[in-house]
Design a protein around this nucleic acid. Sequence first.
DNA 1: GCCAAAACGTTACGTTATAACATTTGATCC
DNA 2: GGATCAAATGTTATAACGTAACGTTTTGGC
Lengths: 163, 163
Amino acid sequence: MAHTHTHAHDYAGDLEHDLAAAAQWCAARGEKLTEQRREVLALLLQAPGSMKAYDLLAEIQKQKPTAAPPTVYRALDFLVAAGLAHKLDSKNAFVACRDFEHPHHGVMLICDSCHSVKELSDERLEARLAEDAAQFGFSVAAQDIEVKGLCQDCRSTDQQGKA
Amino acid sequence: MAHTHTHAHDYAGDLEHDLAAAAQWCAARGEKLTEQRREVLALLLQAPGSMKAYDLLAEIQKQKPTAAPPTVYRALDFLVAAGLAHKLDSKNAFVACRDFEHPHHGVMLICDSCHSVKELSDERLEARLAEDAAQFGFSVAAQDIEVKGLCQDCRSTDQQGKA
DNA sequence: GCCAAAACGTTACGTTATAACATTTGATCC
DNA sequence: GGATCAAATGTTATAACGTAACGTTTTGGC
């Protein structure tokens, strides 16, 4: 039923392909994946987990020392609005979204140990949530579901006696 | 099925009763609802919606001008750990929880218009979430579900043509 | 080329949260 | 009732997160 995609250590996807797809997605909406936005998105795509704004800034500054906070926050605002990235409110951090044609924020599984993030979609769960809300006359505009715990890899590791 | 309780404008509950219940809850856990914690909880209980840490601080400072950020953050940390309050990560704000014997963070319905907050519990939804996570080998330790939209009152108001 | 809108540069500041260490309070033991 | 240890609080300073405001550059249509 639910489908997913990972942001974890095993990232070996085609970065250029993902960036090209994102650029197309923007173009189709009459927007542009400019160089700065592209750089921030590339960093998020390559990150094993989520990244914080100031960590992104530090990376950007390696190439462009004059970059300032608005540089990265503007790019992030754009990427989030375009559905190309999500903000994890519980961590003040950001992750790339590879499923940007699916127009919403899914369930985020955030590993407390390795900090990897999986995004999972379950439309029945979302429907149930909307029903619950409707019972109280509440109409849902947006939702954010963040789940903390241990991912499969870290559970295995823990069993062997982890540091 | 799902049950709820409100933090909205119609609060006319018995503040002293709620505080006494909270104090008992703490005592049963070998902890104390000290004066500062009690004051912060009282502010949260009386608030129509959520409150920000620095707004709480400003209120506390009316009685006690020397109060500083750690004063309120310590109280909030305690209240959240004890289940007497929840943090709304999406707003960097806090709400009292009247259902503290129920040991978890439910679904938070946050009105974009009047900023009221309803907390709702739906164990089947939580179970479904845990199942989805388990499909990917992820074990859930904690979850935070924040839903934005319009509450019943604000939907009605909007229909009349709201400012 | 001219213009307007979008994007970006730059400075400064506002907001949110915590580290670190000193002091006080409170319970317990004797 | 004083010694003592842990919990709570006081106090200062600073770290971390985010945005306002305004000027400049770039882009795309005419």
